[in-house]
């Protein structure tokens, strides 16, 4: 089971949407507890009459999807599959507040209609006038991986040739407040580029969208190939985790989901001392923050690294020499519940 990545586009707290080369000018955020996306100009990507109704995450999702397809030279994909942990939170918040404030009466339809997890997938289909397979996965830390698995199975079964797969999650003030109460985020602001050295509990919140044009066929536009996607729920111990990860094969480089929370990062430390001890390691959450579908940002980074055969210094965790990059393993976990591994290979 494999899929060629023939185009990608990501909107993130880094300048990923506009930069042609990977992380040319890494974004530094001083004294932050969350980082938010650098939004592009939407005109040129989204019809203004449609955009007026869209929340920020819908605009970001549709815009990155359209750019991804343009880059891949695809007008109408055979399927649109999205993954999102939290869906369209801003509209959900508006709708719930409206219910509360108006005593469950006179509710505006737009936030209700746009509050679902599949709003972005549907909005992309409307923009493209695409009536093909359209599915959205809302599986917390597995959301993006589930979308990828669905796409790869469709490609393997030859039910589709070109598929648009994407991930999206937004951070709103309400979501930050609620998740802050749950202890997800650092209480004291930090510099994002020093995240891995932070000793305090929690991470920094983030958000982003990333879309990939996947195909059964290699083309001159192919950046990389997804060779394997694996998810595992609450592994019992580190041995089980190591056994599962090693079954994917030995990579030339690993990209880890280190998020600056000592408790969760302990797992990565174990792996770096164990199965990854002689493999160059990178991390990425200091660049995008922590969110349910951050592994999609990591996949965009891995694709860029393979294409450019260059590792941005800002992502490095060690000085282990990097040779030819053929296989990159992305390993991430969300609060030790949802663990996933994605193997990205050169074409």
């Amino acid at each position: 089971m494999e899929a060629f990545i023939n185009g990608l586009s990501a909107i993130s707290p880094q300048n990923t949407f506009a930069e042609e080369k990977l992380l040319q000018e890494p974004g530094e955020y001083c004294d932050v507890r969350f980082i938010k996306c650098l939004e592009p100009q939407y005109s040129g990507f989204i019809d203004p009459m449609a955009a007026r109704r869209m929340s920020r995450i819908i605009k970001m999702g549709v815009c990155s999807a359209i750019k991804c397809l343009k880059d891949a030279g695809i007008r109408n994909p055979d399927a649109i599959i999205t993954g999102t942990g939290m869906g369209c939170v801003e509209d959900t918040g508006k709708f719930l507040i409206s219910i509360y404030e108006n005593d469950e009466k006179l509710l505006n339809p737009t936030p209700f209609i746009q509050s679902t997890h599949n709003t972005v997938g549907a909005s992309i289909a409307l923009a493209l006038k695409c009536n093909n397979y359209n599915n959205t996965y809302g599986h917390r830390g597995f959301s993006f991986e589930s979308a990828l698995l669905d796409a790869m199975m469709l490609l393997q079964e030859k039910q589709a040739c070109d598929i648009l797969v994407g991930a999206l999650d937004e951070l709103t003030p309400d979501l930050f407040t609620i998740t802050d109460r749950l202890g997800f985020w650092k209480k004291v602001p930090v510099n994002n580029l020093c995240l891995k050295d932070s000793k305090s509990r929690g991470s920094i919140a983030g958000e982003g969208t990333a879309f990939f044009a996947l195909s059964r066929h290699k083309s001159e536009k192919s950046l990389a190939r997804i060779s394997s996607v694996m998810t595992f729920f609450r592994p019992e111990n580190i041995t089980e985790l190591q056994n599962r990860i090693t079954s994917i094969g030995k990579p030339d480089l690993v990209i880890l989901g280190i998020n600056g929370d000592p408790q969760g990062d302990e797992i990565y430390s174990h792996l770096r001392k164990g199965i990854f001890n002689d493999i160059p390691a990178l991390y990425y959450k200091h660049l995008c923050g922590e969110y349910d579908t951050s592994s999609a940002f990591a996949l965009a980074m891995a694709s860029g690294i393979i294409r450019e055969q260059r590792v941005p210094d800002i992502m490095k965790l060690d000085d282990i020499p990097v040779g030819e990059l053929r296989n990159i393993l992305i390993y991430n976990h969300l609060r030790n519940v949802n663990h996933s591994a994605i193997l990205v290979t050169s074409c």
Binding site: M49, R53, N102, L106, L107, N108, P109, T110, I113
Partner: peptide, 17 residues
């Protein structure tokens, strides 16, 4: 103005509110 059915609902809510 080129409005659609969702706008019709919004205008209905506006009149009532």
């Amino acid at each position: 103005l080129g409005l659609d059915s969702i706008d019709a609902l919004e205008l209905t809510v506006l009149l009532e509110k």
